[in-house]
Design a protein around this nucleic acid. Structure first.
Lengths: 337, 337
DNA sequence: CGAATGAACTAAAACCTTTGCGTAAGCGCC
DNA sequence: GGCGCTTACGCAAAGGTTTTAGTTCATTCG
């Protein structure tokens, strides 16, 4: 910056003001300074300016499984608005328990970011406390942060929509496939969707048979395994609600291999409306993933710049997307799907 | 840091050395300092230390389409090794031409990172020049960077493997589906895979009919469209090589809807071996995506810390993965797949 | 026992910006 | 024409760390 100042013949203070568009610099001088900076290929040192302003100019994003469609989608959207607001994004990807613990123990965001957005992570109370003690704004996307602002969907209601759809089709034995989630990455979501399942079941006058709620590791293989378990029961269900599309897709695989017709003999419904669901014609419950990322990004910008968020708790709508994997209960006249 | 120094009764210089494990501090003193820092919840200011050392402690990652499996996978792997080496990762996600141009024009990495890894991006000469003028190490993953170190596969050979497989099954009219890629995000890869297709065709004594090479936008829908185009030709192919699994999957969708048996009437082969390929039993050519990310990360660490990379051009093997979408040419005795 | 050596630590400069305060000049106004 | 006001700019301190060049002190060696 001193070089630029010397080249133009002014003080560094003036250069600083000119470069940041602050008042107190004549237009002519500003132009000369900008031109000089350009020709000298000069950019301000974020370190130096951060040192005096106390702001880093970047925000952190904490995300567990970046290669899952949902997470990547939210990240991309949040990235878009954050970069649009002039922030750099520093990424903390925690794929396993070790990395996760390391993050919450060392809190590498301290002094490195002006804010943090947490994507799709179920937090323990202690982790929550750590984040709140961070001294920087934190917002959640598909993540419950207690007092801190967050955007998400009503998982209970969404799951209930799925199950109600099955009940409306005449199904009475409706199973649910949950993810085991030993590491606590999405236990919250899973629990809420279970609650929605139970709500819709009782509301429809159906018994919640504990044997019909099975768990398996998150993902296609897990879903496949869980479906196998359901098929081996004395009275298998006629319809299955899977906590997520990927799980439902695993269930479909098992059904295909077992030669069980979908939806003829078994209805399957997922959750999220991922591209895979569309491809495989899977009935599901859609949520606007991209928008959650956008909103989370905007919330964080607000929180960082204005120190408060106008609407700190946003609930987006879910929407049933009927496709080809659900139909009326076999052996019963009804509205085929 | 002054607080810690005061608490222990030493100078900040000693605290600095103690905290970074540098020599010149007695063990007893080091312990006292670490304890004090801990109890004061003190962490060094990266801005201040960056100001004097000139290093940022972070590396940048430039990646075009984070929600594509391949990109997310490479990013995750690179992230893993970079964080393991103590770097923070700052993410530049360029999903469109506008963002891309903005990145290369403003070069926001300047002064913000110690190095850059570029994932799966075909660069123009000008962009390449901009990166080389950056004054920081740059490595490529699935990206050709000219002189700079990079890891990738031999796309020509990989594509040739795919096409040779089809030729070996007796197919003579073998089509290729490319991505249009108007925005130049993966033109390089696409061209090399086309070259591999052509190589294998001529090598097998087959004519390269230009009508058999069709293009469509990257993705499932594009693949579906391109397949439609192929089916509308006078003499449709009996086998199709798609530049990527997602494109192949689109092709499969069209074939399914058209009632054309796969692989009975049409063989389809993809590239990448994504999870979707496995799910849909798609024959494909596998590459170790995760490893590319790991290697790229290691290369960058080397480049940043030792200013040179031991092995600056790594080519990983590809591997044909025969599955259920390829078989012998219809009406010809052969080795069914 | 004196001097030389080395370890442990201090003092202070340097890194680059931002920003509050000061100053000078230009302007309108009575 | 003097007064106050505004605008444009300079000056210098402050921000937190690293690092170089000392300084002190104990130890070892001759």
């Amino acid at each position: 910056m001193a070089d630029v100042a010397r080249a133009v013949g002014v003080s560094t203070g003036t250069v600083s003001r000119a470069l940041r568009g602050q008042p107190g610099v004549s237009d002519a001088m500003r132009r000369r300074i900008l031109r000089a900076a350009e020709s000298l290929d000069y950019v301000v040192s974020p370190a130096a300016s951060g040192l005096v302003t106390g702001r880093t100019g970047s925000v952190a994003v904490l995300v567990p499984f970046i290669s899952r469609w949902f997470h990547a989608q939210v990240l991309a959207a949040a990235h878009q608005v954050l970069r649009g607001s002039g922030f750099e994004i520093v990424l903390y990807h925690v794929e396993g328990t070790a990395e996760r613990r390391e993050f919450f123990e060392t809190l590498p965001v301290r002094r490195r970011a002006d804010g943090l957005v947490v994507i799709a992570l179920s937090l323990t109370d202690e982790e929550l406390a750590r984040l709140n003690g961070l001294g920087m704004p934190v917002v959640g996307a598909s993540t419950d942060l207690g007092p801190a602002p967050a955007v998400g969907i009503d998982d209970v209601a969404g799951a209930a929509k799925a199950v109600r759809h099955l009940a409306n089709l005449g199904h009475r034995r409706i199973a649910m496939i949950r993810s085991t989630d030993e590491e606590g990455f999405h236990g919250g979501v899973s629990r809420r969707r279970l609650a929605g399942y139970e709500d819709a079941m009782t509301e429809s006058g159906l018994e919640v048979d504990p044997a019909l709620v099975v768990s398996a590791p998150w993902g296609i293989d897990g879903g496949a395994r869980a479906m196998g378990e359901l098929l081996s029961q004395r009275t298998p269900p006629t319809a299955v609600f899977a906590e997520a599309d990927e799980i439902a897709i695993g269930a479909l695989r098992t059904l295909r291999r077992a030669g069980i017709a979908v939806p003829g003999e078994m209805s399957v419904i997922g959750f999220d409306d991922s591209p895979m669901a569309e491809l495989l014609d899977l009935t599901t419950v859609a949520q606007s993933v991209h928008e959650q990322g956008l909103i989370a990004g905007r919330m964080l910008v607000e929180a960082v710049q204005q120190a408060r968020v106008a609407e700190p708790a946003v609930r987006l709508e879910t929407r049933l997307v009927p496709r080809g994997t659900t139909s009326a209960r076999p052996g019963r006249p009804g509205t085929a799907g």
